[in-house]
Write a protein that binds this DNA or RNA. Structure first.
Lengths: 161, 161
DNA sequence: ACTAATTAGTTGAAAGTTGAACAATTATGA
DNA sequence: TCATAATTGTTCAACTTTCAACTAATTAGT
């Protein structure tokens, strides 16, 4: 558990990369969320709905949905209650595993996501994707694909220690 | 207010760029926050403290601090109350403008940020910066520098309409 | 089969965030 | 100068998220 070596501070190039990224990302997410406002959706709720609409039968087990939408089970549970009240989803008991539930998108939910999707995509384009050349898009994918992979490795590494 | 044109969905390259970015970013931020846990700090609080420690006299007006740390005034106000209770900052009335307050970092706060900074930088390195080549770092800075600039333009554009 | 341990999902309380309303002060401008 | 507008920062209430505790059902180990 030694920790004594001098901190390796970021050099100017590294600092610029890090700060540009973190600042732009916060502003970008803020803008994307604001753009979704008119559809009564946050990015997180949009992600839940989008995942659900891609699933066979527009239904998915709660756990899997939480996993794909990157929410804690607890958080998903709370959001589902809200979205259920809005009539966008419902929950159905699962016969194969009676601990579990299916999150099921309703027709109303389907219509809601159909209505929101074009403007959301347009927003992602305008704020980010259309700002980048094809080369830059590939660079972005490369960089963050690698980051994700490495985070996964680090997580596995930390889990066993 | 015409909106009828067919949505321009993302092509595979665009989709990959967007999804890689958004997924990696969420996981990355999650990991960085987890790494800060041991110092009783969130990224947001760290940012507040870092900005404050860079300011002359380690003090800054509330508004400016909110601006730099990218928090709403309300949110900063709440966080300050918590950090004040922890003894890391205090607030002082402002003589030049008696509506205002100075956010002032205490000695204890200074020690706290000094203690947290090396491990935070190490975390940023390990999770992101050290994963990238110099070229990739420059690409990252280029991309997101441009995104920030464009977001600012769009914001100005929207403000007048 | 019987107990342990895991897994699925929910809940309630505490903590955090948002957004509008507000008091106090300063700036603007006829 | 006077009235109006804008700015500073806080507060309250509504809402959201987190964390730990919990029930119920399934799986594993013996």
């Amino acid at each position: 558990m030694a920790k004594k070596s001098a901190p390796r501070w970021l050099n100017p190039r590294e600092m610029k990369a890090w700060r540009s990224y973190i600042i732009a990302s916060r502003r970008l997410l803020e803008a994307l969320d604001a753009d979704l406002d008119g559809h009564d959706l946050t990015m997180a709720d949009y992600e839940v709905m989008a995942q659900l609409s891609d699933a066979p039968g527009r239904r998915m087990r709660m756990s899997e949905l939480a996993e794909l939408a990157m929410l804690s089970k607890s958080r998903l549970s709370h959001r589902m209650k809200v979205m259920e009240k809005a009539g966008w989803v419902k929950r159905e008991e699962c016969v194969e595993d009676r601990r579990g539930y299916w999150a099921v998108m309703t027709d109303k939910g389907w219509k809601a996501i159909l209505a929101a999707a074009p403007s959301h995509v347009e927003s992602v384009r305008r704020r980010l994707i259309d700002q980048l050349s094809a080369k830059e898009q590939e660079a972005l994918a490369g960089i963050f694909g690698h980051v994700t992979e490495e985070l996964r490795n680090q997580f596995l590494e930390e889990s066993k220690g």
